[in-house]
Simulated assay, not measured.
Amino acid sequence: MVTAVSYSNFRKSLKAHMRQVNEDADMLLVTNTDPADNVVVMSAADYESLMETIRIYQNPYLHSKVLRGLDLAQQGNAAARDLIDADGHSEQ
């Protein structure tokens, strides 16, 4: 659930709110008297993750690949694999 805070309280405790957003991995709704001025604050890491999810969802090839993988996993046809780093070495 998103926590809401007024603009004036957000401004007064900006550092604490920024820390809260990063530590809790949650978003913060900053409200103003005019609802058109409301904003949502989230950590940069969460934003990047959200944008990557959107890019995958919007790419038909990647989206179908993820769905196929989920289907295989649900059918019990999944296997553990070692990750390979950018240099081609297996990560342990």
Rank of each mutant, 00 (worst) to 15 (best):
Q74H: 12
V2K: 09
P60H: 05
R81E: 14
P60K: 06
V39G: 00
D34V: 07
N38Q: 08
A80C: 05
T3E: 07
Y7C: 10
K15I: 13
Q92E: 08
L70P: 01
L72M: 07
P35A: 04
V39F: 09
Q20W: 15
S64H: 05
A16C: 02
G88L: 03
D34F: 04
R11D: 14
S64W: 00
D71Q: 12
A79Q: 11
V21I: 13
L83H: 07
S49D: 10
L67A: 06
S43E: 02
V30R: 01
A79S: 14
N38M: 09
A44I: 14
A25P: 00
G76C: 09
V30D: 01
Y47F: 14
Y7T: 06
M18S: 07
L28E: 05
T31C: 09
R55I: 11
S6N: 13
N32P: 00
S6R: 15
N59P: 07
V5L: 07
H17I: 07
A80W: 12
P35Y: 05
I54A: 08
K12P: 03
L67W: 03
E91P: 00
A86L: 10
I56P: 00
Y47G: 10
S13E: 12
H89E: 15
T33P: 00
D37E: 14
E23T: 15
Y61C: 00
L50S: 10
R81C: 13
D46Q: 04
V5T: 15
P35G: 04
E52I: 11
P60L: 03
V5Y: 09
L72N: 11
V2A: 11
Y57I: 10
I84Q: 08
V40D: 01
N38D: 15
D34Y: 01
S64V: 00
A80F: 14
P60R: 05
G88F: 03
S64L: 05
D46K: 06
